[in-house]
């Protein structure tokens, strides 16, 4: 367990790229108002205007500044990503570790349920729920987390199963440590690298699903999102506007997903010694 992860991570170029891109997107998302003087909802009479000094990426069909909306979309994407990743990882930890520590019938029931959820095509279920709820950021995070935890729970349970046989856990139990105490004081710290992987992969899936749902038009229409921008831009794809409306939005979305994937791959490689890169792989 005594591995300096940062030292290994630094040597992983793909991971560094991913982290750098995410950091850049985060800066853009947080400091949106610094970069643009407009409000994402404000409409003007200047419609479908090509890029200019006033409007870096032009305006859309109702005269909203596309660059401002792009920054707003980044905020939505990242908020959903981080929220979902946090909540689903927390659920995965609670369920995975409970199953591993409790064992017996609790373990069996929890894992049957996990396996059953794993076989369900998640996106389809999310679309169906969203069609009724029309979720905003908060509801979306809850829906995505409730369906997203099983992947992590399986991995975490497997790892916790081996951890719970360690002597320091036995010692803690003998001294009367409760399940929650052992979980968060002894097991979670050892699982940290694994949790990072689970977090990043959860975030990646959330970005993708949020965009997909918004693209289908089942999210709350007040929520400015890249997926929704793509949906609107597609309606005007026969005009030249796609060059500064559809393409930048699509690439912003793809780059974000890519950055999460890169970071995910490299973290996975670090935590799984079998995958740790030899110079050729």
């Amino acid at each position: 367990m005594h591995i300096n992860y940062w030292q290994i991570f630094k040597q992983n170029r793909v991971g560094i790229y991913g982290l750098a891109i995410l950091f850049a997107i985060l800066i853009f998302a947080l400091c949106g108002p610094v970069f643009s003087p407009y409000f994402p909802q404000n409409t003007t009479t200047l419609t479908l205007d090509p890029p200019s000094l006033q409007h870096w990426l032009g305006t859309n069909d109702v005269g909203q500044d596309i660059f401002t909306r792009l920054l707003s979309g980044a905020r939505t994407s990242l908020a959903v990503a981080v929220g979902t990743a946090l909540l689903s990882t927390l659920l995965a930890v609670l369920i995975g570790i409970t199953a591993a520590l409790a064992g017996g019938i609790t373990d069996r029931i929890l894992m049957r349920f996990t396996d059953a959820l794993l076989t369900i095509p998640v996106i389809v279920v999310v679309i169906m729920i969203a069609a009724y709820v029309r979720p905003g950021v908060l509801n979306l995070i809850i829906i995505l987390s409730c369906l997203g935890w099983p992947v992590g729970a399986r991995v975490i349970r497997a790892q916790a199963m081996t951890l719970k046989e360690r002597y320091h856990i036995y010692a803690a139990r003998v001294f009367g440590g409760g399940m929650l105490y052992i979980m968060f004081r002894h097991i979670v710290p050892d699982l940290l690298p694994l949790l990072c992987v689970s977090f990043i992969q959860g975030a990646r899936r959330a970005v993708f699903m949020e965009a997909g749902l918004a693209f289908l038009g089942v999210t709350n229409p007040d929520m400015i999102s890249w997926g929704m921008m793509l949906r609107h831009a597609l309606e005007y794809c026969y005009l030249d506007a796609y060059k500064w409306w559809l393409l930048p939005t699509g690439f912003a979305l793809s780059v974000t997903i890519l950055a999460f994937s890169f970071l995910g791959y490299s973290l996975e490689e670090m935590t799984d010694p079998r995958l740790r890169r030899r110079e050729d792989a």
Partner: peptide, 18 residues
């Protein structure tokens, strides 16, 4: 192919369409 994997399916579709 890794880069391709980062592109959501509907955006790949839009690019082809364009």
């Amino acid at each position: 192919l890794m880069v391709l994997n980062g592109f959501p399916d509907f955006f790949i579709g839009m690019l082809l369409l364009l």
